[in-house]
Write a protein that binds this DNA or RNA. Structure first.
Length: 271
DNA sequence: AGTATCACCTGCTAGC
DNA sequence: TGCTAGCAGGTGATAC
């Protein structure tokens, strides 16, 4: 899924069509994704105008002219299909305007759709404990140093923790650690100050580069207008088991498991 | 509180 | 060709 850059790309793509649009019809093809769809979702959305769209962490938001916001998460395999020619068996929610049709397609159904009063978004459960946006001004080496202080958990899992930084996922954590020369198994609290000074810009750069390229292109992901991004061809470590490190230091990219998920890194330049 | 493990679900690929 | 095992972008509930 969609990590932060893919969600950002999706929201921007949807906004081209939906910003200011009136929702004519909403169809639910099943009762739930991870969670049940909100009881009054269809009723509130139908006839509402979308006044703006935004993103928080890996969540996309439609803000309605009814003091409510619809929040979607794409899970591992979700995407929005715009004006699909054929229905897909995993199109779980379909939103129609006068001019377009938008299908939320999610084969694994790890995604979610929620609806929350716009004024109460910050206090909404999943948002209440989120850390700072990595592309915003609040993610600094000083912040990260304080957030990681005393952490015995490895830095890879610390960076996946949405309470520390909101929006990083497996791909971009691996890439950012490679760019900053940090071993993923190092304890969070033991990452040095110079390493943090490199890590913060590395996170921002790798995310910004991916957004520039329109989000990564992986098996289950397509930008909402159907165009694929091409950042996937530029990963330095993710999925490159056994291939040479792009720093040409003689290292071969290694895959290990951390917290039940794969991590890729170079044993030579990441210390 | 912090940390570790597992569960959720479908689809694809590698290997036999 | 057909089967099975393993793995996939994330979160959140549970158990120490």
């Amino acid at each position: 899924m969609p990590e932060l850059p893919e969600v950002e790309t999706t929201v921007r793509g949807l906004a081209k069509f939906l910003d200011g649009a009136r929702i004519e019809r909403v169809t639910l093809n099943r009762p739930d994704l991870r969670r049940p769809f909100p009881q009054d979702l269809v009723q509130v959305m139908t006839g509402a105008t979308i006044t703006s769209l935004s993103r928080r962490a890996k969540y996309g938001l439609f803000h309605l002219d009814r003091d409510q916001s619809v929040i979607f998460h794409l899970g591992m395999s979700g995407r929005w299909r715009i004006d699909p020619e054929e229905p897909d068996k995993h199109d779980h929610m379909v939103v129609e305007t006068a001019h377009n049709r938008f299908a939320l397609c999610d084969p694994r159904r790890f995604g979610s759709v929620d609806m929350v009063a716009t004024a109460e978004l910050d206090a909404w459960g999943p948002f209440a404990s989120l850390g700072p946006e990595p592309l915003g001004p609040d993610l600094t080496p000083a912040y990260l140093r304080a957030a990681l202080k005393g952490k015995v958990q490895n830095i890879k899992l610390c960076l996946l923790d949405q309470r520390i930084i909101a929006g990083l996922g497996n791909i971009y954590v691996c890439e950012a650690l490679w760019r900053s020369g940090i071993r993923p198994t190092k304890q969070g609290g033991k990452v040095t100050r110079p390493q943090l000074e490199r890590l913060v810009p590395a996170i921002k750069e790798v995310l910004a580069a991916s957004i520039r390229d329109g989000g990564s292109s992986l098996r289950d992901y397509a930008a909402p207008d159907g165009e694929l991004g091409y950042f996937a061809t530029r990963f330095d470590v993710y999925g490159r088991t056994g291939e040479p490190c792009h720093h040409n230091d003689g290292g071969m990219i290694k895959r290990i498991a951390q917290g039940g998920r794969s991590t890729w890194y170079c044993p030579v330049c990441q210390k």
